[in-house]
Amino acid sequence: MKEFAIFWGCTIPTRFPFIEKSVRTVLDALKLPYTDIDGFTCCPEKSLVNNVDSGMWTLTAARNVAVADGEGVNVVSPCTGCISNLATVAKDLKTDTTKKKEVNKTLKEIGREFKGESTLKHLIPFLHDDFGVRPIKDKVKYSFKGMQVAIHYGCHMMRPGTALKADDPLNPKKFDTLVEALGAKSMQYMTKLTCCGQGLDRVDQHDKALTLARLKLRELKNLGADAMVLCCPSCYLQFDNNQFLMEKEGEKFGIPILYYTDMLGLAMGINPKDLGIDSHRMDAGPFLEKWAKLCQEEDALTSAERMKEGLNADSAFI
């Protein structure tokens, strides 16, 4: 596998370093050839930077890709927004040679060139396509059998579809496959593909952001989800932080929010603390307790089955 740089973006290192912990711990445990390279900046955030200046939006993203191009590495990001922004600009430049020439003329002045050779992938499709589902299954020591979790994809994991080519933009499956590879049931629910709505918090419309957050949380509470699993810091902010704020005001949902790497790490037998799960605002305790109980039952079951098998076997004496 070609070496790849992790594009952490701004939100994870600034607000959620424990997510970085979770991702690193799991990539280390999987022995994946990742690296940290100097020189990245904000991807940049489309809804912010593009509104103010499209030229700077394109140049900044092109420069980031050029940094990876220069190092000869691929890019993988645990943030859906970052990868979608980078891929959107990269696709734009690859299909518009005049624009690409213009951009490279400017980049040349700082000694960079956008080639677009580095592949740009979000962590979920990367794990699915490049690491593989079978190898993930093989890593599972403690299955999540008996647990039902709700996947929140995060719009920018697969949209715009033409730029990312990560999954079906309207009916994605890869995240489901990865969750089920760990033995958990991926719930089908009405609002599954609805946007998290965190963007509204960035334009001073907090109450509306909460309206969107409630939508999923209420449904999941009614359906009895054991947790929500996602893989984007912005979605995480929306469902962990904003859920916590609403609970403080008296609205109870009780939905633990997990990063995919949290679940994968736990299934591999990694301690929750080493995955930074104790730093989440929404308590993951109930999820972990239920799981521990199921694991014990499973253990007891297999031991009972083993004993039964032994007793049914032909006797060594008669």
Binding site: C10, T11, P13, T14, R15, P17, F18, E20, K21, R24, D36, I37, D38, G39, F40, T41, C42, E45, L48, L59, T60, R63, N64, V67, T106, L107, E109, I110, R112, G276
Partner: peptide, 30 residues
């Protein structure tokens, strides 16, 4: 060139490596 600075205190507590250098200077030139 970024929307926030890495949280160094938390990184230490979590035993995370030093963050890679940002492209701030080059970005400013650009």
């Amino acid at each position: 060139g970024r929307l926030g600075e890495p949280n160094l205190g938390a990184r230490k507590r979590l035993n995370l490596p030093e963050p890679a250098e940002s492209g701030e200077e080059e970005f400013k030139k650009l």
